[in-house]
Design a protein around this nucleic acid. Structure first.
Lengths: 142, 142
DNA sequence: GTAGGCGTTGACGTCGGCGTCAAGGCAAGG
DNA sequence: CCTTGCCTTGACGCCGACGTCAACGCCTAC
């Protein structure tokens, strides 16, 4: 199988495969014409890389998985180094999610505050007598 | 106030202020020496930018807030355009947090699965008689 | 012969938000 | 006079994961 076919089979581009090779992640054999040649094993390696990439793993973080497969293990995560990457990623994700949730809360609060301020200004404009600055003790209507 | 002092007062760098100016976000007056000159209003604008940046807003997304302040409003989020940015950001954050939680769940599941597979292999190695493939009906000990 | 379709290497572009020089100006202080 | 310290503009570097273009080679089909 040549580079175009492999790329098509995993839904990526030839440029990407050449890039992986330049990073030493997915080296290729060459045929008589100097064309890159891949087999079914490379397909497995590439699928592993792409799956992790889809999860947001850095390319370097996929390396232990690829080496694990290349070492003959049935799964890319059958090796301690891969598990370590999993755990590190989980920590990163937890930290990031926590930060984002904090930011979300802050921005949400800002929006509520700003909308309330806007509505109060609008209400003031509708009442020519001016806004009621505070609510005195006892009933305030009539 | 010149650029170095302003930068120090908000805890950023002169390079950053010049970058903001190049983006048209924070233009500066010039003194007789051609040095950039800022006043307290610029300090307010800059603090608004930095606050939003810390929340993860793109520089372009801070522009409505800055223009709102420059238009004389008391707060950067006193204008509809700013509120729209808030809402868009909340949607983005919700989407992103959701994606990250989904990824977290997937990676967590992978880790559990891989660890279990590893432990089973280890247990097999400890039992020379070989692993018990399945649990037949009835008690299985003694 | 030639056009199409595959492959090759090399090199520059992209995105955002700056960091980091390089080379120079101008003013105050010793 | 010279140093120190602030400022100026201009330009390249960085990060990751490729996209895109250029110029070329080889094989096959018409």
């Amino acid at each position: 199988m040549r580079i175009g076919e492999l790329a098509a089979r995993v839904g990526t581009t030839t440029r990407t495969l050449r890039y992986y090779e330049s990073r030493g992640l997915l080296p290729a054999r060459r045929d008589a014409q100097g064309h890159r040649t891949y087999d079914e094993r490379d397909l497995t390696l590439l699928r592993q890389i792409r799956t992790l990439q889809d999860f947001g793993f850095d390319l370097e973080e996929t390396r232990p998985f690829v080496e694990c497969l290349r070492a003959g293990h049935p799964e890319g995560d059958s090796c301690p180094a891969s598990l370590a990457v999993y755990r590190r990623k989980l920590d990163e994700l937890d930290a990031l999610i926590g930060e984002l949730q904090a930011v979300r809360a802050q921005v949400g609060a800002q929006l509520v505050r700003a909308e309330r301020a806007r509505d109060e200004l609008a209400a003031d404009a509708l009442v020519p007598g001016g806004p009621e600055p505070a609510c005195e003790l006892g009933g305030h209507e009539r």
